[in-house]
Nucleic acid binder design. Structure first.
Lengths: 199, 199
DNA sequence: TAATATTTTAAACGACTATTCAAATTATTG
DNA sequence: CAATAATTTGAATAGTCGTTTAAAATATTA
């Protein structure tokens, strides 16, 4: 891998994200990508052997950005409950500050398919993705330190939280509404985490 | 509109839902639709003047089914809180029982675009859709009858609930997990609805 | 500089698409 | 039955796409 190679790949990936955010997946053609990057369409094929390889590189690029962004914003010393609040807040904030990235992510996940025609969004991983892992590890720590009810279902709670966060990207951009949304979501999670195994 | 006309449209719509659920949006071509319906591709064009008209008819068909299903399952006499539980349960149950319909819905919403290239999933309606309206009206009733804290933000709560429900369609099909998911989600909503305007 | 490797281009390939059109078939009506 | 309308077909249109190939340009190495 030469320097030029890596540089070109970065350039192509950024052009793809622009194209996806502005015009959507169906316009993510080698021709359009090349026009944005001011290169020849064949050059995209040269640097990414196939379109799906390009798509996976895009997913990796965007997802890595998101994970690092969330990780960096969560403090290490504070109690688990406060860190959950941070997780929710920074996730919503990332959706606001990096809308293009998140739209591009949605476009790929819900449009792309593997070569044997399985939808990306339905691919079942054996383990949760890295964003889920961040939230899971915080909750596990809270349980270990006897701060949370140990009977809660972690997989379910993290799904509810991430599902509610994802829904907010569909809402018209409105910073104050998004922050209030985070407050409510956290208060709901907090109460669930505190419930004494009532049944 | 003759009888045959309506019959053909139904036949075409059902073929589309099959194709979407099995092979996804990118394979929803007139050729593939026609093959499933055992008719000529041109005939699809004849009954639906354009592909987007067909897509809107599909959305209408699926959404109507979902709304009626949820409406019919919610009892009329019970207290608002119980009806919210019913709403969550029946929504999750619909996702399990009519997976093809829900997959088809996702495929269209996240893939289709208007003629001026706006993504369906980002189209901002001036008012909430009919599913949201069902939930909103229950909550409003609960507030009127002094059963819920009047300070809650209805738009936010309904977004969280529907977002969490939607997330569950991505999970591998597992009936018991889905039911437990509904229990947790309802318990979280219940606690929020009962909170005395603490701040 | 000469030889080699990498990068870039232009052109062409085969396959697929939504839509249109005239002709053929079938159904409906008087 | 005759005449009209509705339905269906097959072919053609004009356009798209990802990928491949050979040649050209550039960079790297010896």
């Amino acid at each position: 891998m030469s320097f030029i190679h890596e540089q070109r790949k970065e350039q192509i990936i950024r052009s793809c994200i622009e194209e996806l955010a502005e015009s959507g997946f169906k316009n993510l053609t080698f021709k359009n990508i090349a026009e944005r990057a001011k290169i020849n369409p064949s050059l995209v094929s040269y640097h990414f052997k196939s379109k799906n390889i390009l798509l996976f590189a895009l997913l990796d690029y965007i997802f890595t950005h998101k994970v690092h962004y969330v990780e960096d914003a969560i403090s290490s010393g504070k109690p688990a409950m406060e860190r959950i609040e941070e997780y929710i807040d920074v996730s919503l904030e990332h959706q606001r500050s990096y809308r293009s990235l998140n739209i591009a992510l949605i476009e790929i996940i819900f449009n792309a398919r593997t070569e044997d025609n399985r939808a990306f969004y339905l691919l079942e991983d054996d383990e949760p993705d890295d964003l889920y892992k961040i939230l899971i590890s915080i909750i596990e720590e809270g349980i270990e330190k006897k701060q949370f009810n140990p009977d809660i279902d972690i997989r379910i709670l993290t799904r509810i939280i991430n599902g509610a966060i994802d829904e907010m990207i569909l809402a018209p951009e409105n910073s104050s509404e998004s922050k209030e949304y985070g407050k409510v979501l956290f208060s709901m999670a907090k109460q669930y985490l505190n419930t004494e195994g009532e049944k």
